[in-house]
């Protein structure tokens, strides 16, 4: 297996997602990979009930605090469910060779049995998936 050259990280702005992003940046730094930060646009965002215009800045701030040059990190919105959009990103041209997700995003449930996006991605992904737990000390929204 070759070193990852293109990492896709699922991002919803939650502390879980920040943890996943930081991990993806660390990986990118160590192997020189590009990073695509992907935000899945859900139903409520379309309804403008949930404002996500701050997300690119939130990502840029974390990239600036990392050792990865900002030119190697891209941000994209994709209409859909987080699982569907991540799996589709894995098949982009060029395809991703590593997916990184947090254990859960905004959901308040434990995720495990009510159907977790991260586990579903791991089950169906054609490439390796890293699931990053929330670091001790940080608090979920």
């Amino acid at each position: 297996m070759k070193r990852p050259s293109r990492i896709v990280v699922g991002y919803d702005g939650s502390p879980h997602a920040d943890g996943a992003l930081d991990f993806a940046l660390m990986m990118a730094d160590s192997c020189g990979a590009e990073v695509l930060v992907l935000h899945a646009t859900g139903l409520l965002e379309r309804f403008e009930h949930r404002d996500v215009t701050h997300l690119p800045d939130q990502v840029a701030a974390r990239v600036a605090a990392s050792r990865v040059p900002s030119a190697r990190v891209h941000f994209a919105f994709d209409d859909g469910d987080p699982c569907t959009t991540l799996l589709r990103a894995a098949e982009l041209d060029p395809p991703a060779d590593l997916l990184v997700v947090g254990t859960r995003g905004h959901a308040t449930h434990s995720g495990r049995l009510l159907g977790s996006t991260s586990l579903e991605v791991a089950e169906h992904a054609p490439v390796p998936v890293i699931i990053v737990p929330l670091e001790e000390g940080s608090t979920a929204a």
């Binding site: 919803d12 859900g42 409520l44 965002e45 987080p82 995003g105 905004h106 308040t108 449930h109």
Partner: peptide, 9 residues
Amino acid sequence: EGGGELDAD
């Protein structure tokens, strides 16, 4: 147990 958010939507 009172419910909550199942996902962002």
